[in-house]
Nucleic acid binder design. Structure first.
Lengths: 365, 365
DNA sequence: ATGCCTAGTGTAAACGTTTTCCGTGGGGTA
DNA sequence: TACCCCACGGAAAACGTTTACACTAGGCAT
């Protein structure tokens, strides 16, 4: 027996598809399709009948079929470093809202800073035929970009931008915020400033570090290589890095961190070492995640607006999906700025003679 | 002109599809399909040719087409309350890893505790024809469940379980962990314990609160209604709730919180009020997010394993996808237990005469 | 009045798979 | 040697849309 449209199955209700709508509205399926896609040439009378049928049947189109024939999945890929780092959920949330509002769905990939996972993510995106990809992790292998380019999938990513045709980049102005941070510290009197970076295998962990170094130089401070520690952009990395610094014979009076999670890890290490922030040590983070306002004490940090990032990323992607061949690569600036809270203060005068038990003093309000 | 398979477009390389593979391997497309789906009856010789062609062409099947004909999207829905609450990313991460390992993709919906957003999420899931949905948010409207049931989409959700056919629930044993917490506090000498709940419009915020109340009773402590405050499961809610408590003429000596984010908000309020944890106030959270280990001081909290949750949710969903009609509703237990860190200590003797500036005492290590 | 153009609708092809059914060929048995 | 069965491969239908093209009718200009 050949497959028939309606198997002799009396238990399940008849599937509602475009044909059902068409017959109920007494029009052809083409007209239904045109109506629900808002093609302007449809007779309003028929359109009304179609819409009535649609709501009566509670019909909605089959996404797979649509995607198959149109070649557009209405899926946007979003690749992040590590979903566990609160910065990214905040980004994802913005992303999702905008995408859904525009009728897109998002596919999330979390690389955990591993090249292999990244490859897998890219492959998943390719397989699902996403219409565009935003790569919000720092550093991507070139050959993956080739793959996207080969399939003509537009992608945006956060700098640093390998210059290649057809890529759009969101250029975060790390320097602005970090410079403010360094200045702030310098004004308070700090001359010995450390930096805890992200995993240096990733290009843009390097670029934050480079921005820091360059800002230090502009301020006339000489960096001490001992105080440049590699973290992993996560809590434990920050803690471990700070412990390394504390094991050194001489300490800086302040550290800047490549992201807020690192800074929170640092705070923890300081707490364990019985050191007070900011009385004994000053600290600046990066990202300004929601949590930064709630740490104890609240974290001074460099804000990078993830709403900005999300909006600009999606707008860029979507604009390049239009038939108007807006394929020109583009660079969009994302600004950063310092948010001063309570982890920065005057440096201690002498570094070597820190008492094991710091003297009691009134807390800041 | 009719549409032709190959438009006269000389610029783009020929698309590689199943036909391309078939002709390169000198077999029919049916054989290719069977081979890549590991149908056992394929001649090994032909299969080898097919695999070679697949890798030579770097072919992978079109997901949309597969989904269209098979009716299975290999997409799993995951609905969470609020992606911004770190507990959920941790859950999502586990979920994603397991799903991807099993060849599934996940679609994330974040409801932000709003019924309308939840509806939208459900609709998105329905439209994309997910093969199953895990509802990891607390409280869902009944009519949405009806919709899933109508489409025969299996779903799991976290309790409380509205009893209805075909649902599986992950029953979190709130009581176990909360009871340990209350006991721990009681042993330390606390008799005045408050509770900051989640948004009470959500059923399971209620069930955590109910668990707390019942545990209090089992311990022989009478709850004070003034100390039962509604939060929102987020940082600001915790802070505001604690501020309300501090505005009261008499305070509890400890509070338990419905989740860790709330507890962190509470810590912040206490910090702002110049009160010390645990010297002046004891505090217990719920969830044991990674961050709990890093707060200052580290948070005593009730652990609920999100790996457990994720694994069991997916296994449940996937098992019900098998043709073996394993549709029986099931209840899976998820255990909880107390993790003691440093936010719990002896209560202050008298509550009313708290000094404005607490006396200095050595910190705990 | 005739012809032409336009607006609007319907028919059918196409998208890239999976899966059913049928045909073929080879091996085993009587 | 003849028959049957089994194992496997291939042709083609089906999935639910979009869209190119054909067709009809009505309006307007000549």
């Amino acid at each position: 027996m050949k497959r028939t449209r309606k198997p002799n199955d009396l238990t399940t209700p008849p599937k509602i598809d475009i044909r059902g709508v068409a017959s109920l509205a007494r029009v052809s399926i083409a007209t239904v399709s045109r109506t629900i896609n808002h093609v302007p040439t449809v007779d309003p009378v028929l359109a009304a009948r179609v819409w009535k049928a649609v709501t009566d049947l509670n019909y909605f189109p089959n996404t797979q079929a649509r995607a198959l024939v149109s070649g557009k999945s209405r899926l946007l890929g979003l690749v992040v470093s590590e979903i566990t780092n609160p910065f990214f959920p905040e980004l994802i949330q913005e992303f999702e809202q905008i995408a859904v509002a525009r009728g897109y769905e998002i596919l999330i990939g979390s690389t955990n800073y591993e090249t292999k996972t990244m490859e897998l993510c890219a492959r998943r995106m390719l397989e699902r035929q996403v219409d565009g990809v935003a790569i919000m992790t720092f550093g991507i292998e070139d050959f993956l970009l080739d793959r996207f380019a080969a399939d003509n999938i537009p992608f945006v990513f956060i700098d640093p931008a390998p210059s290649r045709p057809l890529n759009s980049v969101l250029a975060v102005d790390y320097r602005a915020g970090i410079y403010e941070g360094v200045q702030h510290l310098a004004v308070l009197g700090h001359r010995n400033i450390g930096f805890i970076s992200g995993p240096l295998t990733r290009r843009s962990a390097q670029s934050r570090k480079a921005a820091f170094l360059s800002c230090l130089q502009s301020t006339g401070i000489k960096p001490n290589p001992d105080w440049l520690i590699e973290g992993n952009h996560a809590l434990d990395g920050g803690r471990d890095a700070m412990q390394k610094i504390l094991a050194l014979p001489n300490w800086p009076t302040a550290v800047m961190c490549s992201n807020d999670m690192t800074a929170i890890g640092v705070q923890h290490a300081l707490f364990e070492a019985n050191l007070r922030v900011p009385d004994d040590f000053s600290l600046i983070g990066f990202d300004d995640i929601h949590l930064a306002e709630y740490t104890i004490p609240p974290l001074t940090t460099v804000r990078m607006s993830c709403r900005d990032l999300a909006t600009k990323a999606i707008d860029n992607l979507l604009s390049r999906l239009k038939p108007i061949d807006n394929n020109a690569e583009s660079v969009t600036k994302i600004s950063t700025r310092l948010i001063v809270r309570q982890t920065t203060g005057l440096p201690r005068n002498t570094l070597q003679d820190l008492p094991q038990m710091p003297a009691n003093k009134p807390r800041k309000r």
